[in-house]
Structure formats: structure tokens, C-alpha cells
Design a protein around this nucleic acid. Structure first.
Length: 534
RNA sequence: GCAGUCGUAGCUCAGUUGGUUAGAGCGUCGGCUUGUGGCGCCGAAGGCCGGUGGUUCGAAUCCACCCGACUGUACCA
């Protein structure tokens, strides 16, 4: 049967398909990424950081907690076994591999050690819009510097980086917190003990959702739990009324402070609203004193909390002294960040403008980078504590945002000048190739048509679709007289709008003119310049 | 992981109460046109109707399970 024959043939074809959560990258995307990375690198270098790179793979135990369990060795990370049965994993960030590198070379490395690196990281988890299983990060870390000024410097560098990319103060903000503040508040409401470790995690996760779900959502998550719009239920932290009230008020106080400091780029109506709130409640304008007022009101006592607030004060002072105001670096005690290895200061760069995606929906970009202090990470290898702080910028994510902001300058490379081959004139290929080479030697991007030469029309069709600015034409007639036809494809396309009949279109040869063979390079250069201006 | 929605050509989608050889537009390729892009006209290729099993004389259509995609949520070092 013919049906079975054709289906047999079908089955042998492999379906071409991209693994989910991964993308192929286009020429434009690669050029844009390269341009962006160059700008970021320039800032990091200026701050005195040097590049250090580690490989994609690490032994799994060196990456941290992800010892593969036999049921699901790839949960979260991509793991495989080496030929000696050791588990290896693709790196899921750039910090853990750096910690391994530093620990392994600790005797050779001069501290403080300031380094940066850009590269792809991999996460084996469900992809979503703007979220991939392979994406690029650009990190900078300072190791062996225990003081707050190291953290403050990181925040300033993040601010400078965003501004180097064209994002203005008011369009972004670097929010800073200290882990001790939140831990201290939790301690003060009797959640400090070891027996409440799991509960503390759920509480911190709930607090982190304030931006997403607002006060009410957080209240539910801190209490019994929350049901999402598909009907799925999230178990809550089961705190009592007073604990919930304190935490929600804490968030509201912190965000009120943040709102007040965001007003620089906001409409005067909103500014008025915020100022009214301030006057009404007689609030101090400084986040730290605001929090002091808050802890007094509820009678919260915690040495941790005091220490945290002290450190935030110092950081604030350091950045203000260098001229970084609240419009760029903002103390915000509600920032949570990663729960795994941060030990003190945490910071997060957030974009403040909305963008509309390709479906026309409004999207808040939120965080495009962040980091913090991880004093305990290297200790896992060396046994002694090595202070470290650093941050990471999500390159892919930030690029999408810049594109939407219109800040992504066109870094695409113009299509090449196409040298056509007239009607299967293959015996003169040498002459055509020579024209191409002379253009290339003059640093003009050029290529020789290498498809089917027999149909001349196809060559121009190719040039058109490829976006070539110019086609070079030389048939036997021209060669005999040492002439060359130059076809301005951009001008031709413009003229085409006025022409309706095919014959007229072909005979008029729009945008085309003849030059002497010896003037090829000069004439092409001249025309490219003219096109650039238009 | 949990929950919801949806799977027909490369893409966007039609497909009647279950009934002949499953269609259209766009895209691709070829021709009109072997010395000229666009527009136009003509033609072709391209489908295990997501998969498997079942009900039926007969399944793209009905049922079950599986797989995949999307959305929300969880996790996010």
C-alpha cells in the first residue's frame, strides 16, 4: 500500500526541535549582547576588577546543597555522572564556582581579590516568559574584604553599570537591606529559635511576595494560606494575629519609605499623595529611623535588629558621601533575596518602568540583578571564614528591558555588498572574486553570490531579502568596455513604489548606474556613505 | 511539583449530527522572465489530524490513559 510506504518514510525523519527553555540566538541578538557586555565590562574594569573564568561543569558537591538524590538527580540542576561515577553538574550561578576557585587557590590569591566574569548558567526548572534554562549572568565579586564599604561599593558599581547602559536614576533603583534586620524582627516576635527554622523560611518567602500579591496576599501566606486563581492552594506559615500584623506593618512602613524616595521621577499628583501620608503620620524620612519608631511602637527587642540597622546606617552614609542619593541607592528593609547563602548585606537592582510585551500586555520587569555578602560560602572548603560580597546582573533579562525602553542602540552589522555573477558566466569567476577581494581589502563588507548562477534574477532577489545595500553587476558587455554597473538597491526599492508594470520595472533598472571598472572601490564607498546619511 | 486551558501543514486557523481522496490564507520552492529585486498570474511540495488503546460497519470528530504546549502557583541557589 502506498499509505504504509509513505508513513514508513515519515518515521525515519527526525523531527527538528529545540529543547524547551533553550533558544537559538540570532545575529542581531548576538551583536546587541556583545555591545552590552562591553559596556558592563568597562565599568567593572574601571572599579579595578579583573576577569576570572571558571568552566560550565563542577563536581556537584562543590556547587552546594545539590547532592543528587537517586530518585531525581537532576532536580533544579543538570547533572550527570563522569566515567569514574562522580556526579558533575552544570553551574547554576557564577558565585558557587568562584568560591570553589578561590578556596582551591587560596594560597596563591592576593586578598582582597576583585574579579568579574560573564557566562551562561543553567537551571533545570520550568521555563516561562523571559525565563530560560540557559541564560547569561555578569558577576563581580570582592573576596577578603569584610567591611561595609565593600558592599557599598558594589551597590555604586551596580548603579553605574545601569547608567552606562542608558538607564537613568528614577528608572531604576538599587535597594539595600541587611539580613540581620529581618532576622532580628523575626527574633523579636519569637520566631528566632532553631525549632522555627522552617517557619522562618516560609515567612521570608511570604514577605518576598509583597510586590506581587500586596498586603492581603502576604497576610494570607503568613496565616492559613492562599488560593491562586487556578484554585491551587499554598500552605501558609500559620502565624498568630499579632505576628502577622507586625510583619505586614513592617512591610508597609518599608515600602512607604521606598515610595517617598521614588518620587523624583513620578508625577506631582503621586508626589502629593505620598507627602500627605508622611505628614499625616508624622513619619521620619529616613528608613532606619522609621524602623526605630516602628520597633518602639511594638516593643520589639533584638540585638540582631539593632546591629542590622547600624550596618544599614553605615552603608547609607558611605554611598551618600559619594553622591549616590535615594533615587539611586535606597535603604529598603523589606528586601529579602536568596535564602541560601547570604549572611549580611543584600542588594537588588530593580527597574521601575513598565513595558508592554509583544502581546500588548503590561509587564513589570522588576529585578534585573542583585547580590549580597556571603561570608560562609568559602568556609565549606577551607574551614575558615573568608568574607566575600558580590552581585550578578541578568544580562538576557536586562537586554529585553533595554529593547523595550528603546535604549538598545542598533548594533547590527549592515548586510554586505553583493557581487553578482552574470548568467552562469563561470569561466570568469576569477574576475568576480577579484572584485570582492578588492572591496574587502578596502574594509567593505562584501560577498560573491554562490547560489545557482544560472538565474540572474534570483541573485537580486537574494540581495533584496538579505538586505544588501548594493549589488555589483558586470556582464560580458561591461567587461569588454572595462565598465561596471552599480545598483543602489535601497534607492531602487524607493522608486519601485511608483512603478506598476513588470516590464517597466525591469527595463528602467531603478537606482542603477555605470562606472569605470577602476573606480569600483571609490564609487562603492561613496554610495555607502550617502546611504548612511539617508 | 500542584492546578487550569489547549493540541489539525513551517506559521495562523477552518473542518457540519461520526460518513468518500482532511481544506484555506500566509510562508517555501518552481514557472511566466537564461541581463535585473517589488507587484501580478500559474503550478508544486508540505499532514501517522500529538501518541497509544478502546467504542463503531466507519473516528480529526466519542471515551480512557500517556505525551507536549500555554497560563497561574510553588521552587528559584
Amino acid at each position: 500500500m502506498s499509505a504504509s510506504k509513505s508513513s514508513k518514510k515519515k518515521q525515519q525523519k527526525t523531527k527538528a526541535r529545540l529543547p524547551r527553555g533553550f533558544v537559538d540566538r540570532s545575529a542581531n541578538d548576538i551583536h546587541a549582547t556583545n555591545a552590552m557586555i562591553a559596556k558592563i565590562r568597562e565599568v567593572y574594569e574601571r572599579y579595578g576588577f579583573d576577569p576570572v573564568e571558571t568552566p560550565f561543569f563542577e563536581y556537584t558537591d562543590c556547587l552546594g546543597k545539590f547532592l543528587p538524590d537517586t530518585d531525581r538527580p537532576n532536580a533544579g540542576v543538570f547533572s550527570l555522572q563522569d566515567d569514574d561515577d562522580q556526579w558533575m553538574s552544570l553551574r547554576y550561578d557564577l558565585t558557587a564556582p568562584l568560591a570553589r576557585h578561590v578556596a582551591e587557590n587560596i594560597n596563591e590569591i592576593q586578598m582582597p581579590f576583585r574579579s568579574y566574569r560573564a557566562g551562561y548558567v543553567f537551571r533545570n526548572e520550568k521555563p516561562g516568559p523571559g525565563r530560560f534554562r540557559q541564560f547569561m549572568q555578569f558577576d563581580a565579586d570582592s573576596i577578603g574584604a569584610p567591611g561595609v564599604q565593600a558592599d557599598a561599593e558594589m551597590c555604586m558599581m551596580m548603579a553605574d553599570t545601569l547608567e552606562a547602559l542608558g538607564i537613568k536614576p528614577g528608572q531604576y533603583v538599587v535597594r539595600v537591606n541587611n539580613r540581620k534586620v529581618l532576622d532580628g524582627v523575626l527574633e523579636a516576635i519569637n520566631l528566632g529559635g532553631d525549632e522555627d527554622a522552617d517557619r522562618r523560611l516560609s515567612v521570608l518567602r511570604a514577605l518576598d511576595k509583597y510586590d506581587k500579591f500586596g498586603s492581603e496576599g502576604v497576610r494570607l501566606l503568613l496565616g492559613k494560606g492562599r488560593k491562586d486563581e487556578s484554585g491551587d492552594f499554598t500552605e501558609g506559615a500559620n502565624l498568630d494575629e499579632r505576628q502577622i500584623e507586625i510583619l505586614v506593618e513592617f512591610l508597609e512602613a518599608a515600602s512607604l519609605n521606598a515610595a517617598q524616595n521614588k518620587i523624583s521621577g513620578v508625577s506631582s499628583v503621586e508626589e502629593q499623595v505620598v507627602n500627605d501620608l508622611y505628614n499625616q503620620f508624622d513619619l521620619p524620612s529616613n528608613a532606619v529611623s522609621l524602623l526605630h519608631k516602628f520597633t518602639e511602637k511594638w516593643g520589639l527587642v533584638s540585638q540582631l535588629l539593632e546591629d542590622g540597622l547600624q550596618l544599614l546606617d553605615e552603608a547609607k552614609l558611605l554611598v551618600s558621601f559619594s553622591g549616590y542619593g535615594d533615587d539611586r541607592i535606597l535603604i529598603d528593609p523589606s528586601v529579602v533575596r536568596g535564602l541560601e547563602y547570604y549572611t549580611g548585606m543584600v542588594y537588588e537592582a530593580e527597574l521601575l518602568f513598565d513595558v508592554t510585551n509583544e502581546k500588548g500586555e503590561k509587564v513589570q520587569f522588576g529585578s534585573v540583578g542583585g547580590g549580597g555578602r556571603y561570608d560562609g560560602l568559602i568556609k565549606r572548603f577551607t574551614g575558615r571564614e573568608v568574607p566575600a560580597t558580590g552581585f550578578s546582573i541578568g544580562v538576557s533579562r536586562l537586554m529585553t528591558a533595554l529593547k523595550n525602553l528603546g535604549k538598545l542602540e542598533d548594533s547590527s552589522v549592515p548586510a554586505p555588498v553583493l557581487v553578482t555573477v552574470m548568467d552562469g558566466d563561470t569561466k570568469n569567476l576569477g574576475a568576480y572574486q577579484k572584485m570582492v577581494q578588492s572591496l574587502r581589502q578596502a574594509r567593505i563588507r562584501a560577498e560573491l553570490y554562490q547560489g545557482n548562477w544560472k538565474k540572474f534574477g534570483n541573485q537580486l532577489k537574494y540581495a533584496d531579502k538579505r538586505g544588501c545595500p548594493i549589488a555589483i553587476i558586470q556582464g560580458e558587455d561591461e567587461r569588454r568596455n572595462s565598465k561596471i554597473q552599480i545598483k543602489d538597491l535601497i534607492e531602487g526599492r524607493r522608486q519601485a513604489e511608483a512603478i506598476s508594470s513588470n516590464e517597466e520595472w525591469r527595463e528602467s533598472r531603478p537606482g542603477q548606474f555605470e562606472i569605470d571598472e577602476k573606480d569600483l572601490v571609490e564609487e562603492v564607498k561613496k554610495l555607502l556613505e550617502t546611504q548612511k546619511v539617508l
